[in-house]
Structure formats: C-alpha cells, structure tokens
C-alpha cells in the first residue's frame, strides 16, 4: 500500500488480487445481498484508495481493509430495515428443515452441511455473524477481530462462542 501511495499501480493490483475474494465473500455473507455486497465492495476499495496517504504499516493491510469494510457493513445494518424476528427466523428454518428433521438419524450430506452452515450464518445476529465471518473467512485472531470491530477481546470471544453455539444448534436441529 505504501508503494501504491507512492504511485505504483502494480502494487495496488497485487494487493487487489490478493484481497478481493476474501473481502467480497465477507461482505456477501455479512449482508446476504449481492447488490449490497457489490456496492460495499466498491465503496471499501474506494475508501482504501482515498485513504492511501493515511495508511500506516503498523497494521496489516488486510486488517485495515476489513476495518473499512466492517464500518460500512455496520452502517448498512443500521440503515437497513429491521431483520426478521427470531421467531420468524425459527419458523422459516423449521419449514426449510422439516424434511430433514423428520429423519433425525440421517447423516447430513456434504451439500446439506454447506446449506445448513449458510443458513446458520444468515440466521446469526449481525455482530456475531461479522465476528464469526472475520474468523472463518479472513482467518483473523481474537486480537485482530478486536481491532477491526473495535470491540474488546473478551467481547469478541463471547460473540464467537455464541455464534458457534447457534451454528451447532442449527446443525443438530
């Protein structure tokens, strides 16, 4: 990023190729809407480009980039309509899971595991979902997640614990 700030466009292209996928998936799974993900993906990179002069190498570029993206995601959450209530979500998932729930001893296929994980991610509360995605998609540790989200380390740990429990519950339902 320092090279790009100095005018090296190739350095930016290298950064972009390296981080474009993880950022896009983080946004897509956080927002659950491709249009929103596209919009915030572009906005994240725009802000990174605009803030290139302020970038300091003390932080990893991925952490810095995800911090921008996380702030945008939180803003979008706040502006978007309220999500469905927990009861509505349970009802939705109960309908979706009905066939499998009728066969509790059935070993979940790989496809089904992916689908359930996907549904579990969408079901998670926003803060837990973002924290869980930062760990699963971007491989950040507790300290880095804390840095990106601005939450304390124990808070991050608690959000991860709750998110994990919900996902497990969805798998075991």
């Amino acid at each position: 990023m320092l090279a790009y700030a100095g005018g090296d466009m190739i350095a930016f292209e290298t950064l972009y190729r390296r981080h474009r996928g993880t950022l896009y998936r983080f946004l897509l799974r956080s927002l659950r809407q491709r249009a929103d993900a596209d919009e915030l993906f572009q906005e994240t990179w725009s802000r990174a480009v605009a803030a290139r002069e302020r970038y300091r190498p003390e932080a990893k570029f991925s952490t810095w980039l995800l911090q921008i993206a996380h702030n945008l995601v939180i803003d979008r959450f706040r502006r978007s309509r309220p999500h469905a209530s927990a009861e509505e979500t349970d009802l939705l998932f109960s309908r979706l899971d009905a066939p499998e729930s009728e066969q509790p001893d059935r070993v979940l296929s790989e496809f089904e595991q992916r689908r359930r994980l996907q549904l579990a991610l969408e079901e998670l509360p926003e803060e837990q979902r973002v924290t869980f995605l930062l760990r699963m998609e971007n491989g950040l540790g507790l300290e880095e997640i804390s840095e990106v989200t601005g939450a304390g380390r124990e808070t991050v740990k608690s959000r991860l614990r709750y998110a994990l429990a919900r996902v497990r519950a969805r798998f075991e339902s």
Partner: peptide, 13 residues
C-alpha cells in the same frame, strides 16, 4: 466447521 466453511461457494467479485 472450518472444513465445511471452506467448501461453501467461493463467490468472487
């Protein structure tokens, strides 16, 4: 869960 997550569709921009 990490193994399952890695098998999710890897969406690209």
């Amino acid at each position: 869960l990490g193994h399952i997550y890695d098998k999710l569709a890897r969406a690209e921009p």
